[in-house]
């Protein structure tokens, strides 16, 4: 049996956290929720998630800045980051921050699950390739 994939969800809106959690759990993912994405930087290597869903404007926290730090950090740079936001510039922000993708709010549950699956799959393949080339 594979371990369930761990997904980190950061949003300052509790309802949206609940909804995304319900959607992801219904598909067997393990979900870690946070209203403050800063927590990610306190994670031990073995506790790091396999994918991050994150809002852009969060109370006191700028998702763009967090994404930039994640992508610069060796430990976290390979974790796919998807922005989930109602920001109308979401596509451009995703590109600027070198995030891996975005989901515009309000979102379709189907689309969210599909994107999560796609990015987990792509990141797993990249890891396998890395391992083969290292061996």
């Amino acid at each position: 049996m594979h371990e369930p994939k761990k997904i980190f969800v950061a949003d300052d809106d509790q309802d949206i956290l609940n909804i995304i959690e319900m959607m992801l759990r219904s598909r067997g993912y393990e979900v870690v929720m946070s209203s403050n994405a800063e927590e990610l930087f306190a994670c031990k290597a073995e506790d790091l998630p396999e994918l991050i869903l994150m809002d852009i404007w969060m109370a006191g926290v700028d998702g763009r800045e967090i994404c930039g730090r994640l992508k610069k950090n060796k430990l976290t740079s390979a974790i796919p980051v998807l922005f989930v936001s109602a920001n109308s510039q979401i596509a451009a922000i995703t590109e600027d921050c070198r995030a891996d993708g975005f989901i515009a709010k309000p979102f379709e549950m189907k689309l969210l699950l599909q994107k999560v699956q796609e990015h987990l799959h792509a990141s797993m393949q990249a890891q396998t390739c890395d391992q083969i080339s290292q061996d």
Binding site: D15, I19, I20, M23, A86, S88, K105, P106, F107, M109
Partner: peptide, 24 residues
Amino acid sequence: ITIASHELKTPVTSIKGYIQVLQF
């Protein structure tokens, strides 16, 4: 307009989200 749009879309996201979870 950008902020208004963002603020209007946020509750809509919750409503839509709960409805989709219920529907599922």
